[in-house]
Amino acid sequence: MPNKKEKVITRIQELESINLAREEDRDLVVQTKKEVEKDNELLALQINQELRKNNIKSIDVVGAIGAGKTAILEKIVEIIASKYRILVICGDITTRVDADRIQSHNAETIQINTGRECALNAYHIYQIIKNKDLKNYDLIFIENVGNLICPSDFILGTDKRIIIVSITEGEWVIEKHPMLFKMSQIAVINKIDLAKRLGTNVEKMIDDAKKINPNIEVITTSAKTGENITKLIEKLEL
């Protein structure tokens, strides 16, 4: 009988060649992943149909931690709150900090604390909208969990997705995270007020976004000074 240490060594040798799933489990792992993706897409489609049926415009906002997603949403909501009845769904690992900030600008907010999950998925959004009277809203923003990777696995059924990065993340941030740029219609490069001081090559960032997705519209903003926020609202057709 092999002892415990020998068993562990044998298992590590197996893992070197099987990438965390035994041969007999690999089909199940692949199948499960495919089904999760398919079900998420199905729910996303259903969400989109429900929102359109109720004439609600919907926008999903993704971006890294600290890029300025909440600050930009605060500015947008402040300007358009008199025109639209707005619901903002805020995703965060914990706390209600972002939802409280946005709520102070006259939008209704719903907080989702994802705990150990790194992004919102269509099931989260479906659960919220099926429990809401959609006749009370004209516009829904979904602020995803701060993350430039995981949200690419889950579409949420919105009309548009905007991705927000900031120049403080470095000029390589866009080329290092292509997937979300491929999936977005508008890219926002925020904190432009710091460009000169940091010496960031903003043109390179714009070029990178266009190379990844030639159809993406790129806009530079400063949530702090309000620069180009009105232009962003126009691009969002709000």
Partner: peptide
């Protein structure tokens, strides 16, 4: 517990024990 998913509104009383990968909410 260790950071379940909460979709508000959610109100918990005192000393509620929550396991792993739990989804609570809405309402």
């Amino acid at each position: 517990g260790e950071y379940p998913t909460f979709m508000e509104p959610v109100i918990l009383g005192e000393k509620v024990k929550i396991g792993d990968d739990v989804l609570i909410g809405p309402y």
